[in-house]
Amino acid sequence: MTAAEYAEQQGLNRVGARPSLRSYLMQAWQRRDFAFELARSRLQATNQRNRLGMLWVIIKPTMNALMYGVIFGLLQANKPHDFPAYVVIGVFFFEFFTGSVNSGAKSITGNASLVQSLSFPRITLPIAAVIQQFLTLVPMLGVMFIYCMILGTPPKWSWLMVVPLLALFTMFNTGMALVCARLTVHIRDFTQFLPLITRVLFYTSGVLFGVDRILNAFPILVRMFDFHPLYQALQIARGSIMNSVDYPPFYWVVLGVWAVVALVGGTIYFWSAEERYGRID
């Protein structure tokens, strides 16, 4: 009798074998409290020793928006209407994407000792990274609404559309974070590229520009932006909050498809290398 047959007969399972996707997700669901607590504790710990503490969550993006708003407000002749609110919404929402992707990418390699000493579904770590970014975003959104009111956009019911938008956007960001997490495990150099990629996306997602204004000489490019998930998320946010921006309703469909594809694809992609994450080399 070989050891494998003996193990089978005694009801023993192979250790470290990748579980089926279903049981993997169930295990991950059981660890949801851990993911949430990890995210919350890390968020607290990052700002705890600063004098201004959690206020930095708000101050940093505000200063970013201010800087970009002033620089690109002066440089651009052909600005979108209501430019300050346009930039504030763009920068605040885009920050969520950048944060998720960056911290997601480091979530496995940066927690090597955790990965090597405790066994839990590794998907918990990139998800905790996204949750942490989400928790950062929520107070930012409150501040964003206040800024918008100050900048002359009265509250209206369509502001509530931000909630379903956030759901889709979070799904999309989670998928992207999962893909980046696995890529970084295979190729460490990826974290060096990543800031460049997000920077390029920052300038090509219409965070600071009105795409139709800048590119009206190239209708094909403008058409392509109809399928750009980040651009769409920003446009939907602006369309819901501001009075001067409109977006076609099919953006919801396209963004929804992007979100589902990213999340499902990212999860499967991440799960299929589960046995790889604990290795030291």
């Binding site: 250790v15 470290g16 405790l118």
Partner: peptide
Amino acid sequence: TITGLTTPASGSVYASSRPNMLGVGAA
């Protein structure tokens, strides 16, 4: 390897339930 944190090059480990390492420091 017994806890499944390191993957073996060949051979395998079977266990009745997942072995745990007494270590939580990293978390």
